[in-house]
Each structure stands twice: as structure tokens, then as C-alpha cells.
Amino acid sequence: MSLFIYLVLIFIASILFLKRKQIVFLFKKIKNEDDKILQEDILKNIYQLQKQNTICKTETISTRLNEDKVKVQNSINKLQKLNFVNTVDEEIHLTESGKTYALKIIRFHRLYEKFLADKTNLNEKTWHKVADEIEHKLNQEDAEKIAAQIGNPVYDPHGDPIPSSSGELPEKIGISLSEMKHNEISVVLHIEDEPHNIYENIVNKGIYKGIQIRFLGIFNNEVSFYANEKLCSLSLDEANNIQVGIPKLEKIHLGEFKKLSSLSVGEKGKIIGIAKSLRGQQRRRIMDLGIVPGTIIEAELESISGDPVAYRVRGTTIALRKNQAEKIYIEKI
């Protein structure tokens, strides 16, 4: 008996002890990490500014980061000592090692966003924020483990290429959505996730990476187009934050986009595509089961409440929930 109590006590004590240790640990970390986060953010920002060929000074960075100028200057001085940046006439430039470091942080950020998209249920609007924090906490080893776990992705969920672990990064491709021509058909390649409010507006309109666009035109500063053949319009600012193009392995579909969920029992359709918003394991499992473009599919059985519905695919019966069937496009036959 006493053994039981004893064990329970030890157990509780060890939990408390562990917690305590962790708390102390956290305190220490935050103290000396404060500066690390700022330094890394500065490197990242200089990299981005240089990419846009913008001249980069202390003020530019401090306004971009919304941080005190003195503090920023302090950190830049430290970075200079570490030989990550050099300053010529107040203009700050990344050194080779500074660029490598910046690319590393960008890699962590985009990797983590991809991880969140594929392996968690977090809302797409929070990916960026979470990744912004995690990018400073990851070490090389953990990052590579995450990468391996999600199949070493080369694009993040917004369509930005992820720098390779050796620091290679391709040029961005595609044109801005607002530059498209009347009746041109293209595919959304990239949605800029900053500033956040614009990104949110785009997401709220149901636009996602991989959706097919048929362009109509710009009327009164409103950009009009069909997204998967559904009429849609965005402001110019929003449209400028979307890049479109046709990836090499893309199949363009001309004609109507009907949802699988619109089939009633006994009706048949032919699958034309699966929305890219069906991601990760979920997407792969559905395709593994034979739900791929070109497949004939028949609604066979409705469950008692009407959701899920069982479909006949390639000689098998697969039940899908409504929220999945809504992301599978078909044409009726």
C-alpha cells in the first residue's frame, strides 16, 4: 500500500520538478533570445529588401519591423561584428555568410508553414504567424527532421519556393493576376502572405494556391475573373499579391466545375480535379484509393443523415464526408 502512495508521490513530485525546471529554463532562454530574434529578423529583412533592389538603412528596417531605432542599430552593430553585414555610407549589405544565414531562416519559416499545412489542422490564416515564431527556435537538425517527415518540400503552402538546405533558391515565376489578358486561363501559383489583412481577404474569397483562373478584366479598380468557373472579384491591391502561371504538370480544364457532393445517389460523374485545398495525408489517401482525374465515380449510398456518402470508384465503395466531396470536381456524364 505504502508502495502505491510512495510511487504516486514520487510521480507527482517528478512532474512538479520537471515543470519547475522547464520554467526556469524558459526564462533564461527568452532573455538572451530576445536579441537573437531581432538579429535574425533584421537579416531576413535585409535579404528581402536587397531582392527588391531597395536601399537598406537602419530606419528602413526599424520601420519595417516596427522596432525602436536604437535597439535595431545595436543589433546591426552586433551583426557587423559577426561579419554578417557590412555598412557603407549608412547602407547596409549582407555578406555571403549573412545571406546564407538569412536563407536559412527563410527556409525554416517556409518549411514550417508547409509542415503546419500538411500535418496540422491549424487554420491557414495562422500559419504565417506561428512560423514567424518557430523559425527562431528551430535548429538545423530539427528543421531537417521536419523536412524529411513531410517529404522535403520545395514549395511552401503559399507557393513560395523553399531554399534548399545548401542555400539554393530559384527565381520566382509567374505574373501578377492583374496583368492577365481577357479570357486567358492560368493557375494561381503564389499568394503573398504579407500584409496579413490582404492575405485574409484573399483567403476569405475562397482563392487558394492551385485554383484555376479565367480572367475577365479590370472594371473600376475591381479585378474580375472566374476561379474554377465561379465568378469572383478582388481589389487591385489584392490581385497584385497573387501570382499566376501554368506549372509544367498542370492540366487545364475547360468547361464546368461541378462538385462531387452535388451528385445524388445513382448519378455518375467523371473526376476532373481535386482542389489543392485538400492537402497532406488527406489528399494522398483519397488519390491512393483511386480518386484521380479521369476516374468515373458514382454516388452509391447515402448514410442515414446524408453525410457521409459512399461512392463507387474502380470497383470499390469508398465513403467520403461532405467537406471532402466538395473539394473534388467532376463533370456529369
Binding site: Q149, I150, G151, Q281, R284, R285, D288, L289
Partner: peptide, 8 residues
């Protein structure tokens, strides 16, 4: 397994 291509 249904496939050998996934990360499961």
C-alpha cells in the same frame, strides 16, 4: 497499404 508513395 494502398500505395507506396506516401509518407505514412
Amino acid at each position: 497499404t494502398y500505395s507506396l508513395l506516401s509518407t505514412s
